[in-house]
């Protein structure tokens, strides 16, 4: 959809010169275990994500889906196991380096910069693919071109997410479904290779879910973004995903095509008695 905002030697260009090992998955989660004191939030979970696919991650409440996301964002450190992105372990990278290597995410409860405008929120999403520092910015020297690219990229995403009427409004007081779109635009701003979406459909009505479905597909098709989608909204996951991974109590129950996973007896059992949205 658009050229990278990137100008200086920082950011994505560095990552992409270290090209992906051919044939290896974009993301590979190996035996990841996370313990919080006595709670085992994730228990030896493994799966792969191939480039250009949409993978759904499902599981009842408390299954460990968000915990896995936080491991990928390097907000949590796994007790055991490894996570490889483009064939390289990320477990030594600081959390602020994750955006730069090509992973973007949204949050289950929407974490926007509330007092900043929608436009500025999306611009912050360009942080990892731009490089203007304090001194140059304060003096206003040599930052204009990059600032213009950031501006253009942000406006493009705002248009893509139908946010034009809101762009100069503060993000905080906006209605929930709009805030979710702002967050998605912000996550796309850096042009991530892997996009992690934590329950993007929660709180949306029927037609909004349909729009979202179209947007996720377009993001994959037009920008070649690989997507890992956590969702309770079954019809959404099952219709957009190339592959579905199901977990419960931190353990992987099943992995396969949407049809296979839906038929899996363990998955059916896990969802019986819990509120399975269809």
């Amino acid at each position: 959809m658009v050229a990278s905002v990137h100008s200086s030697g920082r950011g994505r260009a560095v990552g992409s010169t270290l090209a992906n090992v051919p044939g290896s998955p974009l993301l590979s989660v190996r035996n990841v275990t996370v313990r919080f004191g006595g709670i085992v939030a994730l228990n030896g979970v493994s799966f792969d994500i191939a480039e250009g696919t949409i993978v759904g991650l499902i599981g009842p409440n408390g299954a460990g889906k968000t915990t896995l996301f936080n491991c990928l964002s390097r907000l949590y450190q796994p007790t055991e196991g490894d996570i490889k992105f483009q064939g390289r372990s990320i477990l030594n990278a600081p959390s602020h380096a994750i955006a730069g290597i090509g992973m973007g995410r949204t949050f289950q409860n929407v974490a926007l910069f509330d007092r900043m405008s929608v436009l500025d929120n999306v611009k912050v999403g360009c942080h990892s693919v731009s490089g203007a520092g304090f001194v140059r910015s304060a003096l206003g020297i040599g930052t204009r071109a990059e600032e213009a690219r950031i501006e253009a990229r942000a406006r493009e995403l705002i248009a893509f997410m139908d946010l034009l009427p809101f762009q100069s409004m503060p993000a905080g007081p906006l209605p929930f479904p709009i805030r979710k779109r702002v967050e998605l635009a912000r996550a796309l701003a850096s042009g991530p290779q892997l996009l992690l979406l934590d329950e993007p459909a929660a709180g949306l009505n029927h037609s909004e879910v349909d729009t979202l479905k179209g947007q996720i597909k377009r993001v994959r098709d037009l920008q070649n973004v690989t997507v890992l989608l956590v969702e309770h909204h079954m019809s959404l996951v099952m219709s957009v995903s190339d592959k579905v991974v199901a977990i419960d109590f931190g353990k992987k129950l099943a992995e396969g095509t949407p049809a296979e996973v839906q038929r899996n007896p363990d998955v059916v059992r896990a969802y019986l008695g819990t509120e399975a949205h269809t």
Binding site: L75, H96, I98, A99, G104, A111, L112, F113, V124, S190
Partner: peptide, 10 residues
């Protein structure tokens, strides 16, 4: 506004 989200923005 959101230190954790800022971190994940790089």
């Amino acid at each position: 506004d959101q230190p954790l989200a800022a971190l994940t923005m790089g």
